[in-house]
Each structure stands twice: as C-alpha cells, then as structure tokens.
Design a protein around this nucleic acid. Structure first.
Lengths: 199, 199, 199, 199
DNA sequence: AGGTAAACGAGACGGTACGTCCAGTCTTCGG
DNA sequence: CCGAAGACTGGACGTACCGTCTCGTTTACCT
C-alpha cells in the first residue's frame, strides 16, 4: 500500500483538541472586536462567526476574557517583542514607539485596551490579565531597563516599576482616551525621565 | 410642636421632577458600584435599590453611563477642584497628589475608572465622557498650567495637552492596574517634566 | 372628536396580564402537540409559534406541563362535561363514549395522554395532573355514579373508584396503545360491570 | 456446556461483542430508572454508570428505548410468564394478579410503564414497543384465552383483544395513575367479564 | 375649586445572551 | 475490529437584564 491520501483531510479531529476550531475562535473574537466593537463580542457571536458550537468554547475557555488574552499574548509576542539585545536608550525609545503604534494602529492593541477596561469591571479579569500578560511583560521590561542602567545608558530617578509606568502610562492613557501619540511625546518622556539632570 | 413635618414626607411628588428620586438613583448607583462592583450595576438593580421604577430612570437618563457621569461630576467638583489661585509648581504637585488619592481611595474615583473602561466598549460613552467630564476638566488644567508657565514657575518641554497627559497618564495607569501611587512618583514627574534641563 | 376608537385597541396592555399572549401560548402548545408531536413541544418552540418571549411563558407557567394542563382543563370542561342531570346507565354509557371519542379524535385528548405519559417521567407532573385534573374530574364521576346507584339504575360489584377505573381503564389503555375503541367495548363494560348478575 | 470460565476476568475482550459491557449497560439503565427516575435516564448517565463509552451504546442500541426494551423482555419473560399449561379461569386470574404485582412492585414493571409513556411522545418507540413486546405477549394472551374458552372455562362477551384490554386496561391505568390494585378488582374483572350472565 | 398634565411605582412585554446539559456523530488509541 | 475516551455540532434549558410600554395614582399648576 502506498502513500495514498497522506493529506490531512479531517472534517474535525476526534479525541484530541481541534486546532482548527481553536484558531477559528481566536480569529473570530479578534475580528468581531475590530469590526463591531466590544459590544458585539458575545460568546454566541464568536461561536456563530467561528462556525463552532458554543460548548466547544466553554470547554476550553472559562470566559471570553481568556479568549482575548490568548489572542493578545499570541499577537503581542509576535508584533511587540521586548528588546533583548542592545541595552541602549535608543532601543527603549524604539520599544515605546512600537508600543504606541501597537495600541493605536494594531487591532491587537485594541484587545489590550479592552482587557484593561474589562479588568475594571471584573476582578477575575484583573487577576488573569496581570498573571498572564502584564506581569510577565513587566518582568521583561524591568530586565531591559536594568541592563540599560548597568550599561550606563540611562539613570532614571525612580525605581524600575515606577519608571516604566511613568513611560508607559501616558501612552496607554492617550490610547484609552482616543488621542494620538505624537512622536515628540515618547522622545521627551525618554529624555526627561531616563536621563535626569544631575550627572 | 406636633406638625413639625420638616422632613420631606411625600410618597411621591406629582407633576414636577422628584428630587428625592433623583438623589436616590445617584446614591444607589454609587453604592452598588462600591459594594458589589460594576457587574452589579444594572439598571434594574439601581431601580430596585433606589426604590424607584425603571421607567423613572429611563425618563431622565438615557443610559446608566449618564447616571455615573452625574455622580462623578458632582463628586469630583467637590473633592477634586482644579487649583485656580496660586499658579505654582507646588500647587500643581498638590493637585496631582489629590488626583492620585481620588483615584485610589475615593469611591468616586472608581466611577471615573469605570467610565474610562466603559468608554473602551462603547463609543457613545466615550463621547459623553469627553464632552461632560474630560474636556472641561482638561480646559481647567490647561489654564492652570498656562498660568504657571506665564509666572515662570514651570517650563515643560511639551505642549500643554501632552504635558498634562505625561503627568496624569502614569497616575491613571497605575490606578487602572491596581497599583498604589507612591508620593515619589508624583514628585519626580513634576520635577522631571515641568522643570527640564536648562540648556 | 366624538366617540372614535371606542373599540379596545391596545397593542398590549401594560401592567396587567396580557390575555392575548396567554391564549397565543395555549394555542401554540396545542397546535405543536397536534402537528408535530410531543418531541416538538419545547418552550422555545411554543414561544416562537406564539410570537411571545420565552420569559413571558416562564413568568406565568412554572413548566410546560402546566401549560398543557391549562389547555386540557379548558378544553375538556367544554367538550367533555361530566353528566349532572339524569343519573341513568344510559347517561354513563354516553359519557364513556364521549370520553373514548375525546381520547382518540379530539386533539385535546392527546394532551391528556401526553400528560399521563409525562407523569410517569416526572413526579411533579404526576402531582399537578392529579390535583388539577384527575382528582376533580374523578370527584364528579363519583357523584354521577353515586346518584345512579341511588336511583337504582346501576349496582356495581366494586367500590366507586375501582368501578370507574374498570370502566375508564380499558378506554385509556387502548388509546395509549393506539387502538381504536369499538362501540361494543363501552357497551359491554357498562353492561357487565354496572349490572351484575344477582338481582 | 464446557469450560464455563466462571470468573469474569477479562478487561475487555477484543474482537467480539463484550458481554460484560452489554450487561453493565442493561443494569445501569435499570438501576438509574429505579433510583433516580426517568429524568436521570440519559445515555450519558448510563454510559457513566456502566463504565462504558457512549459509542459502545450507540453501536449496539439505536436508542435508549431499545435498551429498556431489552431489560423489559428479559425480566418479564422470567418473572411474568403467560400461563401455558392449565386453561382455567383461575390461571387467568393468577396471571392478572402477577401482572398487577409486576407493575406496582417490580422495578421492571416501571420499565413497561416508562415505555408506554415514551410511546406517547415518540412514534418510533410505539412501533418498537408493539413489535418487540406488546404484540408477542398479546399473542400469548390470546392463546391462553382461546384455550380457556375452548375448554368451556370462560365465555367472554367480547372479542379476544377487547376482552384482554378490558381486563388489563384497569390494571395498567391504576398503575399509571399511581393507584394500588386491590385484589378484589382483579377478581371482579374476571368474574364479570369472563363469565357473563347466562341467557 | 376643578381639570389637566406630568411624574411616579409597578410590572408585563419582546428580545438577546448567558452558561449548562444532553443527543448523536466522529476520531484516536490501546489490546 | 472492539471498546474506552472524549471532542465535536446542534439545540433546548431556565435565568438575568435590556429598553419599551401601559396601568392607575398622586400631586402641582392653571385656569
């Protein structure tokens, strides 16, 4: 018997998790958020759009927040990596610019804003968002900052977390209030907060 | 003697808007948000708690967002006025500290966070929030800043709105992520962003 | 403008129960049972068919069994009254014949069979069926029988309930098993069970 | 009968139908019906209880009705045989008494009631119930009756099926309505219906 | 002083989404 | 090839709120 029908033609798999369904749900959630806003983001709508039964969603995700977290983590790992190579002020500025762009342009950025918003309404969301997204990312950002300080590139007047919040906060806040994020804002933040007067 | 009846004992009024009902709704909304979180803040629950018919709410407020805006405006006018008297760096720092305290301690601060959150989900909320709260307050903040600049007290490296966002953003962001706002953060923000290096 | 629109034009009433909705539900349930069988008799289908919201059903009926009981009581009061006037063997025979006809021909008869069936699956149904239908009707039947005995028309060899069950049981059983109920069966039951040999 | 292999030590057999699984399903169905009523009798629950995969059930039984029919046939063959030996009125009365006892006491009797009930809801069940249980049994009962008539033991005023229904109907009906079946009822039915007035 | 109009509480209504449960089908994997 | 395991679509369940509506009652204003 030869190699016949080696292409993976399977309507849906069976005893193992259906990867196609997983992706369909993730994309459906993303698309609905982008196209019709958070109000349209119901589990029923996701299921409808993904061509999947509601139960399949509830089997794998405890809530729609976790779906969004999945898409956010996947997307932001790809399109918004924290720099690990050159610990320079320049690379930090680049990261913040990409972050600003991510929040205002990339659909995945809307997902983060939506999750921050949802976290205000629901403590469970707050916990998940921290544990699965904010905290790990913050750790990487702290590393980035620590290496830049060690290299003598920057010397902030605040502790690591406060410094990062001072940089990131204005960007997030403007995104949340629908304002654009001008290049000069990021530059000035980096300039004023990472290189204080006294040297 | 006897008839005292100075207390407003009227089962319900008649042909004019019932002020007692208005206050009952506002307080019910506030209380529910504080006690049981945003999830419990349904129109039905507000009506139940306020001892008011649902229709009475819909008659006067187009949505529960407007209820929250009413409470927010009332409360933040009282407990968080924008300084108008002395245009000094010190008074700006004081304002920011009170703002930080408002967001993290005052129940009314939670209302602002909830509205910023809701604005991510619903454009109508975003519009109302800007028009009725953020924009007017921002105008006062711009005035405060302009007078301080004119008085030579501060000289920020950014335009007015960007400067204010750079100060306010970190505070809001930390509040949104459930972090405390240390005194040093506000001080350093004011120091670094309002009195940049002289060159 | 005169007496115009004295006819009761009201789309739906408001604060009082909507009689039109009540009837729509009852008829929808009846129709669905008749047209598509018990399997199609879901609350959702009834709501759909009646043009009524599901909640309107749950507001007034604790279960679909109670809906069926309502239709059954209403219908069988009309089309299958227990004779109250002439306490003769003939009137009893007539009643049994109408009962047989009701079970096999009248759509409302199917409702009774369905409820007897459902009572086997669910004790709550059994309780309701007895309390609201079987018991009151049985009381009337006992009265009918007692008066006939008193009048010397009949003299059964069994107690009242056993006698009635001996008459009614075969009819119900044949209906349940999809058999027809020949005239002679009813006649012979009356003959053999109500007028025993010894006199 | 050879090796008997009385200890049932086989985890599961392999290529032939697993008798242990078959029995486990049958008993699980019986037990669930007896313990938790018809409502608990879902295919999933049977599979769970029997320690068997759902598919194993669907492979061998087209529906849960057929499972119940299997148990019913097996049980009622054992505990409720139709008399074949002595064609007397007495043996018929004995059979009816055992039948009454079967319906009200034996768990397997509940299975028959449940199947009669289910047949009202689903035509497929009605067909199966007749074909596999009611019709064959009825044939035996007709034989029993015919032999008794031929022997001059009884002389009913009705045709065979009507006669049997007149005897069985009251018993089934009382069982369906949760009533007890007094000894005198069976006696009187036999007396009045099988030995009518001599004229 | 009486009549009218508005606001009130109450709550029924048609809807939409929730999260759960089961039916019946399908696929994988081990024996 | 059988059976255990279990993922999958589909659809009904009963609940919670939504925003709209109508009822009957209660004032306040305006003739």
């Amino acid at each position: 018997m030869s190699v016949t029908s080696s292409q993976p033609r399977r309507p849906h798999s069976g005893s193992r998790r259906d990867e196609a369904a997983r992706l369909a749900v993730l994309h459906a959630a993303d698309d609905l958020l982008a196209e019709h806003g958070f109000g349209a983001l119901t589990v029923e709508a996701i299921a409808r759009r993904a061509g999947v039964a509601k139960q399949t969603i509830y089997r794998w995700w405890p809530s729609k927040v976790e779906i969004l977290l999945d898409t956010l983590i996947e997307d932001s790992t790809k399109s918004l990596p924290v720099p690990t190579d050159k610990p320079t002020a320049e690379s930090i500025r680049g990261y913040l610019r990409r972050f600003a762009r991510f929040l205002t342009r990339d659909p995945a950025g809307k997902v983060l804003l939506a999750l921050i918003a949802e976290a205000q309404h629901d403590p469970e969301t707050a916990k998940s968002l921290h544990k699965r997204y904010l905290d790990p990312r913050r750790q990487q950002e702290r590393d980035m900052l620590a290496r830049a300080i060690e290299a003598g590139e920057v010397s902030p007047g605040l502790g690591p977390d406060a410094t990062i919040d001072a940089l990131v906060g204005p960007i997030v806040y403007r995104a949340l209030t629908g304002a654009s994020i001008p290049r000069g804002l990021v530059d000035t933040l980096v300039e004023d907060l990472l290189r204080p007067r006294s040297d």
